[in-house]
Design a protein around this nucleic acid. Structure first.
Lengths: 213, 213
DNA sequence: AGCTTCCGTGAATGCTCATTCGCCTTGACC
DNA sequence: GGTCAAGGCGAATGAGCATTCACGGAAGCT
């Protein structure tokens, strides 16, 4: 018979994750100590371990949130049946991010700057953490296939060059996203509209040969 | 009167940096201990400190190498007077990377996978290390201006949409690079040719309106 | 050769940190 | 209200780490 309800317990867990995100986005994964997280969450160091087995578990969970938030935005494009183009995909990921981080469900949070900063650090972890990398690779493949599908539809509609290999094209589209995130988080370049407009223009919606100066 | 010549001293310094790159690319900045670096360099832990004041200095120097190697490739595009396009810039960064890391000059090394992996981790450091961020931001601005200039020339030649804002377009081109590096280093996707081909196609060299299915 | 100066060594130092443990508190259930 | 298992606490633990230091030895110079 637990002293606190399951809901309260879950809320506490989520609160600890939120505190960890704040610490990680401010100081980095490895410069944040457990007492830091506990203090930020308003708990003692010991209480933390009633909710998570180790610090690494929190890092992995937050890395998962960061990747998941991005993936969720991409996956949502075109789900309502509207005709989705490449620029729509880019716009979805690159869209507004400010405000507090909101829990959408268990382990599912809205994308924020805070989370994006954790994500950038998680890229570094990807390269030597096998579990994280495998999960991320699987998610990447799903998204890439989805983007490739959008490109194929675009080819049918004539919006996308017919001689583009969709799988390679999807790689290029996916490659735009980390670059934008990095520019925004590291250099403060957050003109998402200008970025999307440039993507739209570059992608040939307005073919250069028909737009002489 | 030094016991070893200046050349030998410099060689040792470079060797330590090489050892640190190997360790960092394998285990990450913060999972690598000083004894690890010393052992990899064939030195004692104490000797390291005759060459560098601290571990952080090595990290910063290697981060600088990683960014500098990329920057060097971008900056080299079009320097020989040949007409450079966007795809040339992407191709330059995305090009071959294997082989041992080669010292090109003081603090100047050729891009390798090893160095690229250090670079990805350095992105995470960027966000909370002011000195590193400021230097990177300055370098980024220079490169972006250079890419924007290539785009302007492309507009004159008719290869690039006239209504593209060159500064925004340059951001987009620059954004492609971290994405490609991450895909290569984290997921092993190293088909650089296919990537460049897709960039070339997407950029509208072959306007979609003239390529109906 | 003799002196001096610097280099390399590796054990010692003095932290910090993740994690654990014994104890007290709290709230649910009877 | 009483009981008791779980929650919370924070000092204690023990490992690991960056950095320092005192010494042995090798090069340069005279």
């Amino acid at each position: 018979m637990p002293r606190i309800t399951a809901e309260r317990r879950e809320a506490r867990r989520i609160e600890i994750l939120a505190a960890a995100r704040r610490c990680f986005s401010r100081d980095g994964f490895h410069q944040t100590s457990m007492p830091d997280i506990a203090r930020e969450a308003g708990l003692s160091a010991g209480a933390f371990y009633r909710y998570f087995p180790s610090k690494e578990d929190v890092i992995l969970e937050i890395a998962g949130q960061a990747f998941g938030a991005m993936a969720g935005r991409i996956a949502a494009v075109g789900e309502d049946g509207s005709p989705a183009g490449i620029a729509d995909i880019v716009a979805a990921v690159v869209g507004p991010m400010s405000g507090p981080t909101i829990e959408l469900g268990p382990g599912d949070v809205a994308p924020t700057d805070e989370l994006a900063r954790c994500g950038v650090q998680a890229w570094g972890e990807l390269m030597r953490h096998d579990t994280l990398r495998n999960r991320a690779a699987a998610a990447f493949d799903v998204l890439r296939a989805r983007v490739a599908e959008v490109l194929r539809r675009g080819q049918v509609a004539g919006d996308v060059p017919a001689d583009l290999e969709p799988d390679h094209g999807a790689r290029v589209v996916m490659a735009l996203l980390p670059g934008f995130v990095l520019q925004r988080q590291a250099f403060g370049l957050d003109d998402a509209d200008g970025f999307v407009r440039a993507v739209d223009t570059l992608l040939g919606r307005t073919p250069p040969s028909e737009q002489p100066v």
